[in-house]
Design a protein around this nucleic acid. Structure first.
Length: 554
RNA sequence: GCGCCUGUAGCUCAGUUGGAUAGAGCAACGGACUUCUAAUCCGUAGGUCAGAGGUUCGAAUCCUCUCAGGCGUGCCA
C-alpha cells in the first residue's frame, strides 16, 4: 500500500515538472509515513516541505499544486488534506483497505515475506560458544537473536546460512583437557590440587565420570602429555554434543558447524597471514607480526603471530573471515556478546584489508542478561562454575517464553530476565498476550465450524459491512506487517516484530471485546471471520519469525 | 586516561532513520463476564525525553560539551 502510494506521489511530482507547475526538477527521497494520529490520515508525506527551499515557495503552496495533480486518482483516495506546516495527508478509500484482506488470505504463510534481499547471500554466525562448558543464559540471548535475525532476513528475501564457529584450537582446549583429566584422577582416588585457572563447574566431573566408564583407570598413571590431548578431544566432543542438544531443544538449528582447527589443518591461517603481508597490512616488530588495524580506525595495531611463533586468536579470525567471503557471502553477520565490543574495529579492519566494504560485515552486539527471580538478582559467575544454564531456564519457563523474552528488547540494551514473570500466565507476560490472541481466534473458528457458518471460499465474501473503527484500524495495521518485517531485517532488529505483534494482539482483543463475530447477520459474520483469519495468519507468521509457537488452544 | 553502549512516566521499555499533541505494558485508582476463551477489555492519573549549548521551517532523534551507570582497553581466548 505504502509503495503504490510512493510511486503515485513520485509520478505526480514528475507530472508537475513536465507541466511546468513546479520548476526545480529536483526529485527528493520521498518519505511516506503512517502518522501518529488517525486524524492525520492513513499516510502522510513531507515532500512539500522538502521542496520549499529549491522551489522558493511556501510549503503549503507546493502542497496545493501537488494535491491538485494527485486528485485525479479519485478511486484511490477518500480525501487528501494539507495540514500543519505543509504535510499532505492521505485518506485511503475504505474499499481499498477492505480488499487488502483478500490478498493476505491469498498469501497465507507467505504474508509478510518480501523481495528486498533480492537473493543476496548472507551468513549469520552466532552462539559460537567455546566447547569448554554448557551454554548459559547469555548465550541464549545470542541464540535467539541470531536465529530470529536469520529468519527475518530469509523472509525479506535474503538467502541465509546459520553458522556456528567452534573455537577448538586455542589453549583453552588444553585447559579443558587438564581440568577433565584432574577430575578423572581425583575420582579414581588420587589426591590432586585443582588449579584456579581450570574449569570449576560440576559438569567437568560428569565428563570425567563418563571417561572412567570408557577408559577405566587406563590413564591414571600416564604422563600429562599423553593424557591431556585425549581428554581435551573427548571432553570437547561431549560438551559440543550437549551444546547441540541444548540448541535443538531451544529450536535453533545451525546449517554449518565450522571448526577453527580446520583453518590450521588446511593451511588457511598461514595463507591468510601471507595474503595480508603481500598487501602491506602486516609488519614485524619486536619479533612479532602485527596487523596495521590503525589504518582502519583501531586504537592500536594488533599482534597476529607472537614472538614465540604461536598465532593469536586474531590470526584465526583473519583466516575465518577471508574464508567466509570466499564462500560467496555478500554480507557476513557476527552476533557477539557486548563485552567483546572492543574487537569490532579490528574485525572491520580485516574486512577492509580483504578489499571489501566495511559494511559487508555487520556485528550485532548483544548486551548482557541479568537473571532475576521475583525482582531479586540470581547470582552468576562462570569462574566459580555457579552459572545458570540455558537448559535450566528453558526447562523452567519453556521455550516460547524464553525466546520471546530474549527478543523483547533492542539487543543494545541490557535485559532483565525475570524467571517468575516469564512463567506467570498473567497479563504481565507479553508472550501469552500474543499467543492468547491467536488461540482465541482459533476457538472462534472452531465454534463457527460447529455452527456451520465457517466460509469455505473467502474470496467471494462481501466486505462492505466491515465499517467500525475497530475493524478498520485492525485492517490498516495488518497492512503494515510486510514493512515491519522489512525494517526489522534491514536493521537487524527482531524486537520490532515483538512490538508489532503485541500491538496487533491488542487491536484484536479490543475488537473482540466490543463486537461479536458470530451473530445474526451472516454476511457480517463471514466478513469478520475473514478479518480474523488474516489476523491469526499474521500473528502466526510473526511468531514464527521469532521462533515462538502459535498455539491453537490455551 | 581513551573507546563503545545506555540515560524517555514510580518500574521495564518502544519511538517508523529529522516531523504534527512523545507512546505501550506493569504498578495505582474506578469500571465491564447469563454471550465466540476475563491469560481479555474500557476509563482515570502519571513527562524539564539526564543537563547545557548548537545545526533548521521542525530535534527524544544529528553535532559539541558536562553529568551518571555498564562494558572494554593483553604477544589471553
Amino acid at each position: 500500500m505504502k509503495k503504490t502510494l510512493l510511486g503515485h506521489v513520485r509520478k505526480c511530482l514528475e507530472n508537475c515538472y513536465t507541466e511546468g507547475t513546479l520548476s526545480s526538477g529536483i526529485m527528493p527521497e520521498i518519505v511516506i509515513e503512517v502518522p501518529a494520529h488517525a486524524e492525520h490520515g492513513d499516510f502522510a508525506t513531507n515532500v512539500a516541505m522538502q521542496l520549499a527551499k529549491p522551489e522558493k515557495k511556501a510549503p503549503r503552496q507546493i502542497a496545493e499544486i501537488l494535491v491538485k495533480e494527485m486528485g485525479a486518482q479519485k478511486d484511490l483516495f477518500e480525501k487528501i488534506e494539507i495540514a500543519g506546516p505543509g504535510f499532505i495527508n492521505f485518506f485511503i478509500n475504505k474499499d481499498i483497505w477492505r480488499k487488502s484482506l483478500k490478498s493476505i488470505v491469498l498469501a497465507g504463510d507467505n504474508y509478510g515475506k518480501g523481495t528486498t534481499g533480492n537473493g543476496k547471500r548472507v551468513q549469520v554466525e552466532f552462539v559460537s560458544a567455546n566447547p569448554t562448558g554448557p551454554l548459559h543464559i547469555g548465550h541464549g540471548r545470542g541464540a535467539a537473536t541470531g536465529d530470529a535475525v536469520a529468519s527475518i532476513l530469509t523472509a525479506a528475501g535474503f538467502e541465509v546460512v546459520r553458522e556456528y564457529y567452534i573455537n577448538d584450537a586455542g589453549n583453552q582446549m588444553d585447559t579443558l583437557g587438564r581440568s577433565v583429566y584432574l577430575r578423572y584422577c581425583e575420582l579414581l582416588g588420587k589426591t590432586i590440587e585443582f588449579p584456579e585457572n581450570c574449569y570449576q563447574g560440576d559438569y567437568i566431573k560428569d565428563i570425567a565420570r563418563d571417561l572412567i566408564t570408557k577408559f577405566g583407570s587406563r590413564y591414571l598413571d600416564t604422563s600429562d602429555e599423553e593424557a591431556i590431548p585425549v581428554f581435551a578431544k573427548l571432553g570437547g566432543d561431549i560438551i559440543l554434543q550437549g551444546i547441540k542438544q541444548d540448541l535443538e531443544d531451544f529450536g535453533v538449528v545451525h546449517n554449518t558447524w565450522f571448526s577453527e582447527q580446520t583453518l590450521f589443518d588446511s593451511g588457511k591461517v598461514a595463507e591468510a597471514i601471507s595474503y595480508m603481508q603481500q598487501n602491506g597490512y602486516i609488519y614485524e616488530n619486536e619479533g612479532a607480526l602485527w596487523f596495521r588495524t590503525t589504518d582502519f580506525g583501531d586504537d592500536k595495531d594488533r599482534v597476529v603471530v607472537r614472538g614465540n611463533g604461536v598465532t593469536t586468536y586474531f590470526a584465526s579470525d583473519i583466516a575465518y573471515h577471508k574464508e567466509k567471503y570466499e564462500r560467496g557471502f555478500d554480507w557476513v553477520i557476527d552476533v557477539w556478546g557486548a563485552d567483546h565490543h572492543g574487537y569490532v574495529p579490528r574485525l572491520k579492519g580485516i574486512v577492509q584489508g580483504l578489499g571489501r566494504d566495511a559494511n559487508d560485515l555487520k556485528i550485532i552486539l548483544v548486551q548482557l542478561v541479568s537473571l532475576l527471580r521475583d525482582g531479586v538478582p540470581v547470582a552468576m559467575s562462570t569462574r566459580s562454575g555457579e552459572f545458570v544454564t540455558l537448559k535450566e531456564v528453558v526447562d523452567e519457563v519453556g521455550r516460547d517464553a524464553a525466546r520471546y523474552f530474549f527478543l523483547m528488547r533492542r539487543s543494545d540494551s541490557q535485559l532483565d530476565f525475570d524467571l517468575e514473570l516469564a512463567k506467570s500466565q498473567s497479563a504481565e507476560n507479553p508472550v501469552y498476550y500474543v499467543q492468547y490472541a491467536h488461540a482465541r481466534i482459533c476457538s472462534i473458528f472452531e465454534s463457527a465450524v460447529e455452527k456451520g457458518i465457517a466460509p469455505e471460499d473467502f474470496s467471494t465474501i462481501p466486505l462492505i459491512k466491515l465499517d467500525t473503527a475497530e475493524e478498520l484500524s485492525l485492517i490498516k495495521f495488518l497492512g503494515q506487517f510486510p514493512e515491519v518485517v522489512e525494517g526489522s531485517a534491514l536493521n537487524f532488529e527482531p524486537h520490532r516484530i515483538t512490538y508489532y505483534l503485541q500491538e496487533l494482539a491488542g487491536l484484536f482483543h479490543s475488537f473482540y471485546n466490543k463486537h461479536r463475530v458470530i451473530g445474526e447477520d451472516p454476511e457480517l459474520s463471514a466478513a469478520r471471520l475473514l478479518l480474523l483469519k488474516c489476523t491469526a495468519q499474521t500473528l502466526k507468521n510473526g511468531l514464527l519469525l521469532l521462533g515462538v509457537s502459535a498455539p491453537e488452544r490455551m
